[in-house]
């Protein structure tokens, strides 16, 4: 009698600097499906994982910002292609975590389309948002947009794939690098999406994905002096207060995305790109 094959379960790790380490803390938390059965042991990321991720993000950011807008668009498009190829896996993971088949299919398809949408904006948002400004002196005065730098993100808890993608894409398409904490309740897709990123020509360190407890990590996301902006989704008044107070230390750009309908235009518009951009205005002297 042939022995029954033992299925190989996947080890869910975190994604830092283009590598998949386990959390340095050695801590884990069990993830259960709706029947209370343990699906996976997730890394419970620590403040040091976050610190390492910020170092990686900082290192990668300047090179990524220097890449041409066209190339960044191509790479986002490539992420979409890779996600399309893994469509079934993501649908299965969403179902494991409680979504209906139909809802899961819709979430994955919208996520792919969302990437294509932002890929298209890569070499267009600059033209739309930049301006030539009227001034009364003899200067040619114009404003252009530059990436703010390293963006720390707390992904929404409910929309574990679409919400994740809708936050990452507008940040990186504008030349930022980011560190994102995936959904705490449904963390599987965050790690699998990191694998998609890994296979899509995104330079290591541009996107870093952690899993863990939001209550534990929020303060480090908000206080780190080498983070230029923080995007936090939901969380209520207490979180908003913590984030805003701590972010004031180095005057981070603070972006709140609360109760966003991730399926609609609220999460699909170029203003999300502008959220993590800085305006640079130049006064260029001209003859009278």
């Amino acid at each position: 009698m042939a022995a029954k094959r033992i299925a190989v379960a996947k080890t869910y790790k975190i994604y830092i600097g283009g590598k998949f380490p386990r959390t340095e803390s050695g801590r884990y938390f069990p993830l259960e499906d709706k029947d209370g059965k343990v699906i996976a042991n997730m890394c419970r990321g620590s403040r040091k994982d976050f610190r390492n991720a910020v170092v990686a993000a900082r290192k990668a950011q300047s090179g990524w910002a220097k890449a041409s807008a066209y190339l960044r668009g191509q790479i986002l498009y490539r992420i979409a292609e890779m996600l399309e190829g893994r469509r079934e896996q993501f649908i299965a993971e969403l179902q494991q975590q409680g979504s209906s088949k139909r809802a899961a299919e819709k979430e994955v398809d919208t996520s792919i389309d969302r990437l294509i949408y932002f890929a298209g904006w890569a070499d267009k948002f600059q033209q739309v948002f930049s301006s030539v400004n009227p001034v009364s002196s003899s200067h040619f005065n114009f404003s252009v947009f530059e990436p703010t730098g390293v963006v720390a993100m707390l992904a929404p808890d409910d929309s574990s794939l679409l919400g994740l993608v809708s936050n990452i894409a507008p940040a990186i398409v504008g030349g930022n690098s980011c560190v994102i904490l995936g959904s705490e309740r449904k963390p599987l897709c965050a790690v699998s999406f990191a694998e998609v990123l890994h296979a899509s020509d995104v330079p290591g360190g541009v996107v870093n994905v952690l899993t863990g407890f939001r209550s534990e990590l929020t303060e480090y996301f908000a206080s780190h002096m080498d983070v230029n902006a923080i995007v936090y989704c939901d969380g209520g008044k207490a979180v908003a207060r913590t984030v805003q107070e701590l972010a004031a230390d180095n005057i981070k750009r603070v972006i709140e995305r609360t109760r966003v309908d991730w399926t609609g235009t609220e999460a699909e518009n170029p203003y999300l790109i502008r959220d993590t951009q800085e305006v640079k205005t130049t006064w260029h002297p001209i003859g009278t």
Binding site: V54, Y220, H224, M225, D226, D249, N250
Partner: peptide, 9 residues
């Protein structure tokens, strides 16, 4: 301070 620092400062 308990806060991670940036070389900018």
């Amino acid at each position: 301070t308990g806060v991670y620092q940036s070389p900018d400062y």
